[in-house]
Simulated scan of single mutants.
Amino acid sequence: MNNTNTNQLANGLKLENLSSSTELSAEKVQDFQAAFSLMDSQSKGYVCPNDIIRIAEAADMTFAENEAQLLVGSADEDHSGGIDMREFISIMTTSINPQDLEEELRLTFRTFDKDGSGTINANELKRFVRLWDSELTETEADDMISQADPNKTGSINFNDFVEFLLQK
């Protein structure tokens, strides 16, 4: 987003058209647009199941094609076969039941905890953080991971993981 018109996204959507009942700051919309752009690497204007699989593979995660299709299908309000920016923002701003959030966080944690030990390697989390924010420097990523691993053990338990994700 350029600074001359913060109410318009690069793909032509206007900020005021994106906020439903939730008012979004220009900064938050920029964050959503950056995340969306990472998934929409070919600038198609939508994210399809193959994009979800590609991002998962880049993060050393396994995501089956049918799982990616279910994810996209559950968010594809206009049944276009992909998730556009408006649908993505809708997903990102939908209120979540606290029990559902905890379950989602546990599932996400288990994705990283490949050996089922109850901890994840701080370096794996750092690689994932760098994937999602490609402009993050190595030092910034190290700082973030040190916040997620306050005891400097090199591994992160579920509670540290949740605190890390919800700190913003």
Rank of each mutant, 00 (worst) to 15 (best):
N151W: 08
A10C: 10
Y46D: 01
N123Y: 11
L101W: 01
V47Y: 02
T137Y: 09
I89D: 01
D78M: 04
A26K: 08
Q33L: 06
D113P: 06
F36W: 07
Q8T: 11
E103T: 12
L165I: 10
D115I: 10
S155N: 13
I156M: 00
K114R: 14
A56W: 00
A68C: 05
T93E: 09
Q69W: 04
S20A: 15
D51W: 00
L131G: 05
F32D: 05
R106S: 02
I52Q: 03
K126A: 12
T137P: 06
H79A: 12
K168H: 11
E138Q: 15
L38W: 03
M61C: 10
T111N: 12
N151H: 13
M85P: 01
E67A: 13
K152L: 10
E104C: 03
A68P: 00
D133V: 14
T62V: 11
D76S: 06
A122E: 05
L166Q: 14
N17S: 10
V162H: 01
L105F: 08
E102F: 02
E67N: 12
R54N: 13
V47I: 15
R110H: 14
Q42P: 03
G12K: 09
E135R: 13
D78C: 06
L125I: 08
S20D: 14
I156L: 02
V162R: 01
S74T: 11
A122C: 08
K152S: 14
T111H: 07
S155E: 12
Q99D: 07
Q167I: 12
N7V: 04
T139R: 10
E77I: 05
D142V: 07
V29M: 02
S43I: 10
E163T: 12
F158Q: 01
N97W: 03
D149R: 00
D60Q: 12
E135A: 11
Q99W: 06
T4R: 14
G118C: 07
S95I: 00
N157M: 04
I83N: 00
E27C: 09
A75Y: 02
K14W: 08
A122Y: 04
S37M: 01
R54M: 08
A59V: 04
G118E: 03
F112H: 02
Q69K: 15
E87F: 03
E104G: 08
E87P: 02
G12I: 05
R54C: 08
Q147K: 15
R110D: 13
L166K: 14
N11P: 01
N151M: 10
E16P: 07
D160V: 01
L15K: 13
S134C: 08
I55V: 15
D113S: 06
L70M: 15
S90R: 09
D60Y: 07
R106Q: 06
F36P: 00
F109R: 05
T4G: 13
D76C: 03
I156Y: 00
A141S: 05
L24C: 12
P49K: 01
L70Y: 15
G73L: 01
F32G: 04
Q30N: 13
K168W: 05
D133H: 09
V29R: 00
N159M: 10
G154K: 04
W132K: 14
I120N: 00
I52H: 06
I55D: 07
F112T: 05
E104P: 00
D76N: 04
P49A: 05
R106N: 04
K44W: 03
T108Q: 04
A148Q: 07
Y46K: 08
L71N: 06
